[in-house]
Amino acid sequence: MKFKIIAGLVLVLSVIIASCGSQEDMEFKRYYLGGEQLYKQRCQNCHGTKGEGLSNLIPPLTDSTFLKTNKKQLACIVNNGLKGALLVVHGKSFVGDMPANDMSPVDIARVLTYVTNSFGNKMGTVTSEDVARDLKDCK
């Protein structure tokens, strides 16, 4: 009888601990899955289903080093687009325009969470607070 109670308690405790531990995972998943949908609607035509870009016209999203180096600029790029900017991605130069996107900070955070954790990238969750902060510093 005692054993059953202890076993039950252990079970309940482990469930609680596990769910606490996955709180961050849950947040990540929410951002990531939302971002996947938005990526399909707004980014995929140009950047491709695998983030492969298009030759030397549209940069790929697979350069983790680029994404890490420009982490604080990513929200600005998504929000404002680019005009005649020179980007060096995977050692190749890209010059061109990217259209601006009329999206809320939370949606930008979703897209960035998806992009920076897909196509071989692994940079963790980008929250809407991160995006709101970064958007204030757009050049």
Partner: peptide, 15 residues
Amino acid sequence: TTCPSICPIMHRNML
């Protein structure tokens, strides 16, 4: 050339 919608997909396939 400035088509933001279907052209990149078309020319990715045309390549």
